[in-house]
Amino acid sequence: MKYFGFKASTGAAALVAVGGLGAISAFASTSHVVSQAEKAFSTKKMEVAVGDSITFVNDDKVKHNIVIKKMDVSSGIQKPGEKIDVLFDKNGKFKVRCGIHPKMKVTVVVK
């Protein structure tokens, strides 16, 4: 399992992994899935509970990436077919973008 580094200085203990949900199953209460296709996320806004995780699945033909500035998360390159899991363990409103295609964005509200 390959983990991408992140800084925990914001207090939002995001765990970013590639390859599946197994790495974070002990932390997350519910898993949600968001697809990336045609240079767009499958939803523009979603609500999750504190402790939930989201799996971002690259169903596209091009590389993507997950950036959440407020959580200091930058996933690295996400090739077609790869998944990135992010744990949201702090409430708030988070803008998730693709750092390659910034028009791809989804707002995650954690309650």
Binding site: N65, S74, G76, I77
Partner: peptide, 12 residues
């Protein structure tokens, strides 16, 4: 450029 904002990833 963008690489400085993206963990020096070579793609950027």
């Amino acid at each position: 450029g963008r690489a400085a904002e993206m963990n020096d990833m070579p793609e950027f």
